[in-house]
Design a protein around this nucleic acid. Sequence first.
DNA 1: CAACGGCTGGCAGCAACCTGCCATTGCCGC
DNA 2: GCGGCAATGGCAGGTTGCTGCCAGCCGTTG
Lengths: 222, 222
Amino acid sequence: MTNDEVIKVRGERELTARAGHLFAGVTSEFICAATDMDTWSHRDTRKAIAVRMRSTLTEGEVVARKLYTPAALADEEQRDHLLAVAGMGARVRICATGLPHETIIIDRRVMILAGTVVAGDREFTVTTSPALISGVLSLFEATWEAATELTAYLHRDPPQVDVEGRRILQALGDGLTDEVAARRLGLSLRTYRRRVAELMRLLGSESRFQAGVHAGELGLIP
Amino acid sequence: MTNDEVIKVRGERELTARAGHLFAGVTSEFICAATDMDTWSHRDTRKAIAVRMRSTLTEGEVVARKLYTPAALADEEQRDHLLAVAGMGARVRICATGLPHETIIIDRRVMILAGTVVAGDREFTVTTSPALISGVLSLFEATWEAATELTAYLHRDPPQVDVEGRRILQALGDGLTDEVAARRLGLSLRTYRRRVAELMRLLGSESRFQAGVHAGELGLIP
DNA sequence: CAACGGCTGGCAGCAACCTGCCATTGCCGC
DNA sequence: GCGGCAATGGCAGGTTGCTGCCAGCCGTTG
């Protein structure tokens, strides 16, 4: 039984100070997964990293893969940033389901996990443990496979369905009758059907069958 | 900067000795992801765990989720094991893409990652670090969402929809009313609806919306 | 406070969908 | 021809889904 090399770091400043050089020292692969880019409260951090990486990226030796949720596309600045990164040769994908706080894996040797915010500073976990890295990497690969390319994602119209809408779509997808579904969701029958009608208009469907097809196509059915 | 609680363990024996009690102490959630069950070379280990967990599972308090690749279904013994576990209330899903060596998360407090085999013994990494756990958990959730239910995966029999069936599905997908669709296909309203009912039975759907989702999933809508 | 707008839920009536029943039709094999 | 047999289509009566109308609730605004 041995202790492994896992280090906790407090705040972005300490992280860049201790691990910043890693971003420039990438030799083969740079992987990054997160809900969005809010992890870097100071956009300076983001810029600093971008600058350090630009040279390595454009050289074409390094494969960069970035995985985000649609939340990253909601903010215009972040969307532009992603498009710019994609233009520089990085592969960017969007994953409909939730993702962790920033996860970074460099050359399959170093991994950085962003944690929760404690006293204003975010905690980061830095490790070189092969076991941890390969475990997380495999999960990343699986998620990556299921995600869709950024360009493909942008070229399809935004579904814009809120949480309640998703729950209603799920009820519909479960084959529940309106009455059961409404009761289960704590809505009156009338309101439930109003929601369904709204969703059908949103999806551009003229029948429930068609709505089912559309919802499935848009990945709205879990 | 602090060191975190990460422990490496060598071999299954040491793991069960040091962490075995955790399997019995599950109070709310048991998560497990792996390619298959070959991690436990001694099936005794598997059995021991199963026995320890049976009581907690059947009580219904604990939500167990197990995620495997199709490799786990190739071996008959493992498939039976999975079906048995599913029958006991655990949720089992199959993920087409690769998965790490055994990953276990208990009550979102303890995580066990299986690593590589060194000198005949597999290395395991045990940690209680919230940052690591939540990171891996999010990735797991994303993968879980993309995976398919075991039962659905198993009787994913050939849909066997003939040409007429496809034309009916197309009519449904076009959002036509039964009356218009029947006229267009040269069928009486009654027969058309009979066909729709047959298709819905074939697809295992309880509502037209659900049938739309299923038909889309099976690629029956052009 | 009052007026307003948005959201909700009950009601009613209609449209759409579902299905059991039965007469009809067409196709076998005998 | 004749007795199944399966498929069809009409009918009837049911359920489910759809929506306009109106009354009530609540937070906002003036």
